[in-house]
Write a protein that binds this DNA or RNA. Structure first.
Lengths: 322, 322
DNA sequence: GACTGCTCATAGGAGCAGCTTATGCCCCCA
DNA sequence: TGGGGGCATAAGCTGCTCCTATGAGCAGTC
């Protein structure tokens, strides 16, 4: 059994989860330890990091030490004049930074989800925008305008429009073909749809781009009818023979990606959703020529009610031209 | 003070860390809870997730409940027929997945760093490749060839070549202008260098690409002389007036990015390092025309010793053509 | 040459959090 | 009307991490 002495009828052969390792939490230090490591790396001393983190120096020392034991890697060169990262420690610290950044995005997002009332800025956004873009914006907003409490509601374009109309939201973000009626808005970005395939798929080895008719004629892994992705695809390929019946029709972007990665077939997903997979080469982008697979991401507000105050602050963060 | 009743002279006003929130670890559930949430989302029941995770059903129930209290968000719709994610819960789960994936990359990397001996595949890699690409490859390898123990050493090109020559490594990865002498290798990718600027910088609003002479004549935020980035840049701009003295010369890619984000000035960094920042619009890429800012990433091995077995497995993962 | 300041390490003691088992209630289906 | 799956509550135990207090090494200084 693991490190537990209490008798318990644990499943000795529990099936593997989607996310592999069963004892992941036992092999990855907790957030506090990782943050402490980042602080030590930045400040060059255990004691300094302890002060900044608000714990005692022995606590910091012990915590780093037990992290080294847990990982089986020496992270720090300690000396009477401070502590420096070892080469392996630098690498571990870089990997740790990723975890901490993900956690910050999580926290920023959840804070917005929680503060349903008495917040100075109430945002309504589509799922895609809320999932991939908003946490980053919120972190940026937190640094440029600390103390701005933001609340978040998610929904489709109609729901966002409704919240704005009812005065239950100050600023909305939608993806789609046009600005919902009754609202003003600006395009803040274009969400391109990428055709992606597993590295082993023939399309991953093509030299030239795909013709629209070829894409239309191939059975793909897609979201269900009615999803934003599906709408754009249907519309774009209508003049090229129409979209073939899907190979798989799945309920979430995550499931679509997973199917594509495991080789089920080519998929079409937002560029926002596959950055990581492309970088790690778990998926390969297949270029397509002669057809515009993208939709506008828009910030919207009630007609005439130009964003001011916190809403304007957030809006300006999102409008970095590309 | 926070939730601690023990008397202690904690720093009441500890300065803020690089990574914002002081109590981040208290606001973000631990990995086990996040994994449990992912399992519930996938399986549709608390008990099922408990079984898969290897804990008792009350433990799972209590853990999710306390996570809901901690976050201030209701994640699950519980019913006598199972549990489904609420809308907010789906969003939280997506954000949580990011954290878990980062943790898996961390774990995969650290495992390789730890298993210094008696591993079936000994890899030597440059810092950039080890940091950004290798964890993903290791995760892929773990799924396609479970049980392959990999060890990792990091170093510059010369060090990698030395380890391969000494028989202390089976496969190497280097970035640079050519294959080190005495080694065979293949190009597995091209690492493009991106010119990036904060969204507020004038370069972020340019409509046309930057001319090489303009880039060369501008003082940039860069790594120190001798770094790979710097070499490529020097070489590429040698014919365009030569690189201006740097605005800031920093010791790590992280520091360079941070300076650029905070508006110190434009920077030049590997595309691998700024994916996240570009996606979140914390940085904007500035196109450059007429100059090739890229270097090859190569897999290398001792001349004549073609990779076989685990080395060949890993190599094939990395060679997905682009 | 001892003093002061910084660093990190060790020792002993206390509180919080999570786990376990045992049990109860609710709903659906045969 | 039982059986089974689902979720919740109660009571007890274990272990982790924190705290304070103190020791020891190295530098620069008076």
């Amino acid at each position: 059994m693991s490190s537990r002495s209490t008798p318990h009828a644990a499943a000795a052969d529990a099936p593997r989860a989607e996310h592999g390792a069963p004892g992941l939490a036992h092999r990855v230090p907790d957030l506090g330890a990782l943050q402490l490591l980042l602080a030590v790396a930045r400040l060059g001393s255990l004691g300094g990091a302890a002060r900044e983190t608000g714990v005692s120096q022995p606590a910091a020392s012990g915590r780093i030490r037990s992290m080294e034991r847990q990982l089986g890697v020496t992270l720090l060169e300690r000396s009477p004049r401070g502590s420096r990262l070892t080469e392996a420690g630098a690498l571990v610290t870089d990997w740790a930074r990723r975890i901490v950044e993900s956690a910050e995005a999580f926290d920023a997002g959840v804070s917005a989800l929680r503060d349903q009332r008495d917040s100075r800025l109430r945002v309504a956004a589509s799922m895609t925008i809320a999932e991939y873009l908003l946490p980053g914006w919120l972190i940026a907003l937190r640094t440029s305008r600390p103390g701005t409490a933001v609340s978040l509601r998610v929904g489709n374009s109609a729901a966002v429009a409704g919240l704005l109309a009812d005065g239950q939201a100050d600023l909305g973000f939608v993806e789609g073909l046009g600005t919902p009626s009754g609202l003003d808005g600006v395009v803040i970005a274009h969400d391109r749809l990428f055709v992606v395939a597993a590295p082993g798929h023939p399309w991953a080895r093509r030299r030239g781009p795909l013709a629209p008719a070829e894409l239309a004629g191939t059975r793909l892994v897609l979201r269900e009818t009615g999803s934003g992705t599906r709408q754009v695809l249907d519309r774009a390929l209508a003049g090229h023979g129409g979209l073939a019946p899907p190979l798989l029709e799945l309920a979430s972007t995550t499931a679509v990606k997973a199917a594509a990665v495991s080789g089920a077939g080519p998929a079409v997903v937002s560029e926002l959703a596959v950055g990581e997979e492309l970088a790690a080469r778990r998926l390969v982008r297949v270029p397509v020529e002669g057809v515009e697979l993208s939709r506008a991401l828009r910030a919207v507000w009630p007609r005439g009610a130009r964003p001011a105050g916190p809403a304007r602050d957030l809006l300006s963060l999102t409008r970095a031209r590309r």
